[in-house]
Simulated scan of single mutants.
Amino acid sequence: MTPERRRPDCEPTPVPHAGEDPPHNACADRFPPNRYPGKDVLVGGKRFDALQVGVRVLWEIKTHRFDTYNAFIRRMTIQEELPLLREERDIAAACGYGFVVGVSTQAHKDALLAEDQSLNIVVTGCKR
């Protein structure tokens, strides 16, 4: 989709970070790095953690301590995350953006990919 034909709600709008979570926000500013440090970005009516500098890629950052969770909590976390990540990916694509999920650990990445191999996931190594 060309910029001239893009829906107005697809234009990135910097907005304050949604939560009071300094470690999460710091990670979102470093990975990928964020075009709008200190801000989330609103695209297609959805808030994303970062818009990557220099490219049209939106990021969702997860800084869970996934490796410390028991098997039940890991399953529940993945079941909660997947529908939201798919929705965000679809919104990003509809607005002409790529979409990447940043997770803190390889175990979290592996668990997400075991359920949906179509997700683009990067291990950030961010700590909580």
Rank of each mutant, 00 (worst) to 15 (best):
R74C: 00
R65N: 12
G45I: 02
L51E: 05
G38D: 09
F48H: 07
K62V: 01
Y36L: 08
D90H: 12
V53G: 11
R74G: 00
P83I: 03
R74I: 02
R74M: 02
E88Q: 15
T77Y: 00
D49K: 03
G96P: 06
F66S: 04
A71G: 00
K62Y: 04
R56D: 11
E60D: 11
T63I: 11
F72M: 07
R56H: 05
K62Q: 08
F66Q: 09
R47M: 01
N34G: 11
R56F: 05
A92S: 10
D67T: 02
L82G: 15
E88M: 13
D49Y: 01
A93H: 12
Y36D: 10
K39V: 00
I78S: 06
R47N: 05
D40V: 01
M76T: 13
A93K: 15
V55D: 04
R86C: 13
L42C: 02
A71W: 05
R35I: 03
Q52G: 09
A50K: 04
I61V: 13
V43I: 03
D90K: 14
D40M: 08
E88I: 05
G96R: 03
V43H: 02
R65F: 04
K39D: 11
F72L: 12
R65T: 04
I61T: 12
R75T: 00
E87F: 07
M76P: 00
Y36G: 14
V55Y: 03
Q79V: 07
T68V: 01
R75A: 01
L58A: 08
A93T: 12
P37M: 05
V57A: 12
L84P: 02
A94C: 07
G44W: 10
D40L: 01
L42Q: 14
G44R: 06
G96D: 01
F66M: 00
V53P: 01
K62A: 05
M76I: 01
D40G: 09
E80D: 15
T63D: 13
I61W: 01
L51I: 11
G38I: 06
D67A: 07
R74T: 01
R35G: 12
I78M: 07
L85C: 12
E87Y: 08
C95P: 07
G44P: 02
K46D: 04
N34W: 00
K46Y: 06
L82R: 13
T63W: 05
R86G: 14
V57H: 07
P33T: 07
Y36S: 08
N34L: 02
V57K: 11
A92H: 10
V43T: 03
Y36V: 10
L42F: 05
E81A: 15
L42G: 03
G44K: 12
R56K: 15
Q79D: 14
T63K: 11
K46F: 02
D49E: 06
P33S: 10
G96V: 02
L84F: 05
L85F: 12
T63F: 06
Y69K: 03
P83T: 10
R56M: 07
Q52L: 06
L58N: 08
L82N: 14
G38M: 08
F66E: 04
A50L: 03
E81D: 11
V43S: 04
F66A: 04
L85N: 08
F48C: 09
M76A: 13
V55A: 05
F66P: 10
A93C: 08
D90P: 15
I73S: 06
